[in-house]
Design a protein around this nucleic acid. Structure first.
Lengths: 143, 143
DNA sequence: GTGATTGCAAATCTTTTGCACTAAA
DNA sequence: TTTAGTGCAAAAGATTTGCAATCAC
């Protein structure tokens, strides 16, 4: 028997239930890809491609819906990085990112790699929701 | 006479010339709005609206073209802040931003408001192009 | 059974592109 | 005159929405 799959399935069902979401075939499949598979920085486009490749029958609409639902549930976090597409991160804890300007690839910055020394005073009447640090990198142009 | 306007015009013509751009009516108009007017955080949409409001006959295409040309010339800088739209900043020096998550408004963080303590080591073969810090703020939800 | 979920198709929004016309130098 | 610039219209790309059929509980 595939004990591992069963246990994983139960885990994912639990995850969904705690998020107040029904355990549909599509959501289980995406959750497996996202949380069971080690994916870290996702775009809707990429996740849809992976889902399709994995044989999951699902629509783009549902991928978008699911990413947003998972984000609302606190299972994912949006990264402000690229004005042309939304990135989601499976790591919802405070941390920061390298963004390759050429390829669009994203990578975590190791926990102690940067530190924001002192939080600035927010504009009056506003409170700080979070801090995003994006370190833009690229392969140096050939001399 | 409008000495001020003349001087300003000459200044803007010079700015364009040094950027290798012809001093067209449209570019002069936009440069006036952007650099003579104190605008700081622009979107194409907003600049187009302001230009139209100011009586400048111009197309959206030219606004997009001009923003990119100014950016290439180092007169503006793109800000990675909102996956849904590109922000440009007239301040091209290293500094960071507050982003109001509800309104989309952007504000500079005073120079000494944040500091990134130590730049992280970039992935092998890559060099750091720049660092963007976005502090997301919002009006706290009523209790 | 009942309300949540899915997914098609169409719409929306922002940005880019092709190309004929116009203007700057 | 020559080349750069403009802008219409259309395309492109990502994301969202309306709504009827389907599914989870």
């Amino acid at each position: 028997m595939n004990t591992h799959a069963k246990r994983n399935d139960a885990y994912l069902r639990d995850l969904l239930q705690q998020a107040g979401l029904r355990a549909t075939r599509q959501r289980l499949g995406l959750a497996e890809l996202i949380f069971g598979h080690g994916e870290r920085h996702l775009t809707a486009e990429g996740l849809y491609a992976d889902a399709t490749k994995a044989g999951l029958r699902i629509s783009q609409t549902t991928v978008y819906n699911t990413l947003h639902q998972f984000t609302e549930a606190g299972l994912l976090r949006e990264i402000l990085a690229d004005p042309r597409r939304i990135y989601f991160d499976t790591n919802v804890h405070p941390h920061h990112h390298f963004l390759d300007e050429e390829t669009g690839d994203m990578e975590d910055i190791p926990a102690d790699g940067v530190a924001v020394s002192a939080l600035p005073t927010p504009p009056p009447g506003k409170t700080i929701e979070g801090v995003d640090v994006i370190v833009r990198v690229r392969r140096p142009a050939p001399a």
